[in-house]
Design a binder for these strands. Sequence first.
DNA 1: AGACCATAATCTAAGGTCCGAAGAAAGTCA
DNA 2: TGACTTTCTTCGGACCTTAGATTATGGTCT
Lengths: 399, 399
Amino acid sequence: MGTSGRRTVRDLRRGNRAMLLRALYFGGPASRNELSAATGLSPATVSTMTGDLLAEGVIAEAGQVDSDGGRPRVLLKVNPGYGYAVGVDVGETQVKVELFDLEMRERARAHYAVRSAKHDPELVARHILAGVDAVIAESEVPPERVLGVGVGVPGIVEPGPDALVRAKTFGWREVPLGALLRAGAAPSRPALPLYVDNGAKTMGQAELWFGSGRGTRDAIIVLMGSGVGGTVVTDGAIYRGAGKAAGEVGHLKIVAGGRACRCGARGCLEAYLGAEAILDRAGVVADSAEEESALARLLDADSPVIAESVELLGVGLSSLVHLFNPERIVIGGWAGLMLGGRLLDGIRAATAANTQAQPFQPESVVLGRLGPDAVALGAATLVLEPFFRGAALPAPAIA
Amino acid sequence: MGTSGRRTVRDLRRGNRAMLLRALYFGGPASRNELSAATGLSPATVSTMTGDLLAEGVIAEAGQVDSDGGRPRVLLKVNPGYGYAVGVDVGETQVKVELFDLEMRERARAHYAVRSAKHDPELVARHILAGVDAVIAESEVPPERVLGVGVGVPGIVEPGPDALVRAKTFGWREVPLGALLRAGAAPSRPALPLYVDNGAKTMGQAELWFGSGRGTRDAIIVLMGSGVGGTVVTDGAIYRGAGKAAGEVGHLKIVAGGRACRCGARGCLEAYLGAEAILDRAGVVADSAEEESALARLLDADSPVIAESVELLGVGLSSLVHLFNPERIVIGGWAGLMLGGRLLDGIRAATAANTQAQPFQPESVVLGRLGPDAVALGAATLVLEPFFRGAALPAPAIA
DNA sequence: AGACCATAATCTAAGGTCCGAAGAAAGTCA
DNA sequence: TGACTTTCTTCGGACCTTAGATTATGGTCT
């Protein structure tokens, strides 16, 4: 029995204000009247609140709509220039730093190649810091308008100001990325709030906000690339669990005592279904640069390994359905899109075969709409989330 | 992005009042001052609020505690006689109806034997209705003080006023238990709010409130009896998902393409780990009345099937850890307690072997504290939940 | 015993929030 | 031009929580 209690009457205001902001952000431009209907707040409250928000520059007018025989509605929208967010994708071959406005239009980018298998944490931190400076400079955005920096990395991220990262693929055992960034930051720029999370989670959040997950409150986003990751959404937000390590879809077990996974355990989804694992099971040798074409060939060849993969994915999804009963399951990541693009019906059928009819609708399994580049976009949304939740932005300021 | 927004200033009051009530209920007797500290509300607010609650009879004084050199504190507690809840356990062999006060002390009970394999829905409904009348009469509780009736049944329960129940063990395909109860209710008694849920969920809620799950906000309760059920707790409340069918731990898959489960799929946890499945795997034939002693013999004999079961349970728990990252895992149900009572360390080790060290603490796996009889108790807590959440009790009144 | 102190609970005034109702604004239509 | 329609704003009222002062209720010291 929990549900932390709001306290004072000002929290009420904050919450309602955030609700209004969300309605405006996700519900497109809207008039005050429409906002009143959408939020359940009285027109009077909406009026005063939008007055404040306009004065602060958070929202702006967005034209008029004349209705037959009445005062025309003034449309409002979130002011895209009110704030900016930087998203960082720390990938296998590149560190991508991108700056977005509130409407998530990209305003600048800076990419840095990283020599494979040489992911020196300090080098990565330097790339990030340089990239942040570069995109702010290139976009000519006033630095004080930058609301924060979100970083998507592989592996598990331990919450806290140090943002300890464990990423086996990089050989990172306990890299304090937060501390590294703080240490390397130029003291000239104002400190920026920093958010670090698993790249699959940031990508999942991107699909949730702007992709195929849009509008759902309970969803699961499964991301298959070289490995398998995922995001579990409950009640409209990423579910993180007690120690912020929940949602590790890739390590759901599907075969007790099965294939060894790089995590050390056996029978994980990732030991069967990442591109790497699929190719390995098919006996194909391919280094990471060739994975994509090799997987495509396997698909063209109608390999029995592919059919088996579809079956196994169905088993995994069935577990997820029984545990989470989501409204929607989104399959993304480059390998997921490749597989799902051709075999979505098979995946749906395999899931249904392992699931009781009651909670499962085959059509609830859909493909992602955003490409693999959405990691940085999603990382940037981490910055925006507290903004739209009504927090007064007290992140562990760093960078 | 969700988080439904409270609206007016009165919701604030309701929420704070519920928070105070929870602090008092779960935090034992406490003085106004202590409540102020526990809830974060000012002493003034606590004072006026407790004044109201005392006047309404919801809470009562519970003695004094004199502190050194000051005015003694007056202790307050929830008034156990303010309201009563009826809990019903629709089991394989019996329909148990029990009446509890707010402190969950049993005040009366009425049990009805059901001839095995003959679970006529209408008969069950008649037993429930008769039982409700009987316990109210026997306990001599004023009928208007009864806050509602909670029913725990096997299978999946579809929410809504009809409370459609699908229970394969009973051969129930779409039994509208809610409608049956409404139809059969004597018009003399005032209509009681009705809550129907899966028996494993009600038992899980009992463990959460009064057993080994107490105090946690993210927990998983796995219940092994003849079959396997469970409850997932997130944020202090049972997680139910989009269609209220989440948390079906028994149908988590652990072996792709494995043993057939009675649900129709293959490789479910329940196909390996319920008492029925364990005995079947060991080649033991036992009808449901003999299951308990047969399983005990298997344990005594140190059967390899038991060792294998521990291993498989570890695989299942590992999936749950990676997906939910719970603070605690409670193992309950009669078979679970029997297995875990002797082999808890083995279960912990098996889970750890399949789980990355990071999110998992072996000690977080514990045994349930409540016996198998807790289904009715848990069902009764369903009635109390809205009370402690601050709802104005608008349940689908029935029964 | 009586004065003084310490802690608990209550009272009062003030600052906020939302809502309903009435009024102002900005058009259309005849 | 005037009536009508629809959108938005303003104002007074009902509530809520808080801070600070006040009252209640005991112990302790001389």
